[in-house]
Design a protein around this nucleic acid. Structure first.
Lengths: 206, 206
DNA sequence: ACATTTATTAAACAATTGTTTAAAACAGAG
DNA sequence: CTCTGTTTTAAACAATTGTTTAATAAATGT
């Protein structure tokens, strides 16, 4: 508990912003969550929106961390994709509401995305896209736009967590049951995506 | 333009609610969009939340319509899934922000989902789940929880539209380019999902 | 034509919002 | 202790929120 007031506000803001979004929470709620007066929030961060920008950027770093690390590694591309999916499931198990948060705030105010461009550069510099193009040229990897490859991978990682409220209603399952289902879903995501992207591999799944 | 005042409010509310969500818009904004006074909104619908409940329920009907219709049809299950995916892409092309809207509002207030239970009943009554279980027993269909089957299908339909703001930032593509990509993505979704759910089918894709 | 219900408006209500101000509590240095 | 700068607080600010009220306009029936 040896953290500074500034950090206490940041932690509270992180919790509140992610859980409720920028517009659905008030400065006073953040202050209350941090156990202090409202004015302190503006004393340290000048405004709610400036505080949000700081929080959002750090969330984005976390959100893209696996992507940058895995794609920047020296593994073969199949391994990259497999590990990326597994890491995503791990991350999302602990932060299931971050994808919704990120997408909502990006569409609310596209300007907040400016800060993450340097992070994205790292992915491009990793050469993973050139690697993929080569494998596509030899026919080893299915030919499709690399944007679609990203969509394919992230669809099967993030959506299952994002859609939890919907799925629980549609299938009438409890939160615990659903989270348990998602654990076994990870392998399906890996097998399906790899099987589709590399149709010549004979993994003979189950 | 022969529509009643009540309908004008409903239409305006539909647009505003879907685009911005319940909390990010005001009663006055809805009234302005409908071209009339604020008090009329409450005159016809008693409160913002009651108006929202009506709008949300009708959106949910649209949102689940394909699911109910296709699963309730007499087609073999492979055709059901194929047509469902194609219908979803068609629907989402015209209403790309409905999935985000539905999921956000469901997690904001899970109570709003009470009204759709009768609609969901129709899906269960269609017998599609029993049909799937039979095919799983014969080994023709991959064995996995049917909740996961739903996740698998909807992941590859809804996420690509939901994640548009994120993908546009990550890959630096324009809205037009992205929407065009999604069109060709539909076939990938069909082939991948069917290929994974029915591994013995030799569709020999591309 | 008049009377009565319905539809619409402008204005006001209290509550909450983000932000600022001015004063108090606290800290450390001399 | 005293001075000085930093941290924290309560109070106030104007703006906006959902909702209500009371008055006006339009429509309806007789």
């Amino acid at each position: 508990m040896n953290q500074t007031t500034e950090d206490k506000i940041k932690e509270a803001a992180l919790r509140v912003f992610i859980q409720k979004g920028y517009d659905r929470c008030s400065s006073r709620e953040i202050a209350r969550e941090a156990g202090m007066n409202v004015a302190l929030v503006n004393y340290y961060f000048r405004s709610k929106s400036k505080l949000f920008a700081i929080i959002f950027e750090s969330v984005m770093q976390d959100f893209l961390k696996s992507l940058v690390q895995v794609f920047g590694s020296a593994l073969p591309i199949r391994e990259k994709i497999k590990i990326l999916i597994e890491r995503e499931f791990e991350f999302l198990s602990q932060h299931p509401d971050i994808p919704n948060f990120v997408i909502n705030e990006l569409s609310r105010n596209p300007e907040v995305s400016k800060d993450i461009l340097p992070t994205l550069e790292k992915i491009y510099e990793s050469g993973v896209f050139e690697e993929a193009k080569k494998l596509q040229a030899t026919g080893e990897m299915r030919k499709m736009d690399l944007v679609q490859v990203t969509i394919l991978i992230l669809s099967n990682c993030q959506y299952p967590f994002m859609a939890a409220p919907l799925m629980k209603v549609v299938h009438g399952v409890s939160s615990e049951t659903y989270l348990h289902l998602l654990q076994s879903h990870r392998e399906h995501a890996v097998n399906m995506v790899l099987g589709y992207l590399f149709p010549n591999d004979n993994s003979i799944p189950s």
